[in-house]
Write a protein that binds this DNA or RNA. Structure first.
Lengths: 115, 115
DNA sequence: AGGTTATTCAACCAAATGGGTGAACATTCG
DNA sequence: CGAATGTTCACCCATTTGGTTGAATAACCT
């Protein structure tokens, strides 16, 4: 699997949750369970279409799935993609600690020579 | 403390890391320690100015700090703000589990009535 | 002082984003 | 069938974003 697409996927997820409205939508879905588009939209001072578009962004990022029942679209949160974010930050932190370790070793070596 | 500014701060951080170039910059800084702007820029097929602007975005998000030594600006990674992201996702997950718990209780009650 | 180096500022540009409106498409209801 | 409902599609618009180039600023080096 290309790293490019992985990187792109991560960007998509992070961008999706970088918007306050979309975070709010996701929170609502997480705490109340699956909801219709209209129901969701009703809670925001924003057109139905705007909310519909936000949902599509979340959907593209995989943070939300859709079950179409007749004319009703049930939107449900899916937190799986969050793992990718956790992983990236985790990786970053371990790289960080690895460097600090190496730095510490270098300092000790320096002390050995001094003493 | 207004929640608005907190929300805005979170958006700023997430937006900062939602860009592939900026994630790469951050990774480089984390693994190699503080670097000059020019040094950083040299690694990308992109103008120095473009990189400089990316650094400013990371700086505004608090993911990077700057030490100006003469004409040289040393850029250093700072992973503290990542906690805010962790916290948000953590919160989201606990809300999720809380709902599933309540859902489970409701199902059990239903079973009680049936049996 | 004058020239080179490191970095930002300012202006510009194309593309993406977040929002709005009206029409189109399905589906359900009377 | 015809009307109402739920949702998306197609445009339009202003702002932001990521990039460019050229000028300005600041500091170092003869």
């Amino acid at each position: 699997m290309g790293e490019h697409s992985q990187e792109h996927r991560l960007s998509e997820i992070l961008k999706a949750v970088s918007d306050q409205t979309r975070r709010s939508l996701l929170t609502t879905l997480v705490q109340e369970g699956p909801l219709r588009v209209t129901e969701l939209a009703g809670r925001y001072d924003m057109s139905l279409n705007a909310v519909s578009k936000h949902i599509k962004v979340l959907e593209a990022a995989g943070l939300v799935t859709r079950k179409t029942l007749g004319r009703v679209h049930l939107i449900e949160a899916d937190l799986d993609p969050v793992h990718a974010v956790d992983d990236w930050f985790g990786q970053l932190r371990s790289i960080w600690e690895l460097r600090l370790e190496r730095l510490g070793e270098l300092l000790e070596e320096g002390n050995d020579r001094d003493e």
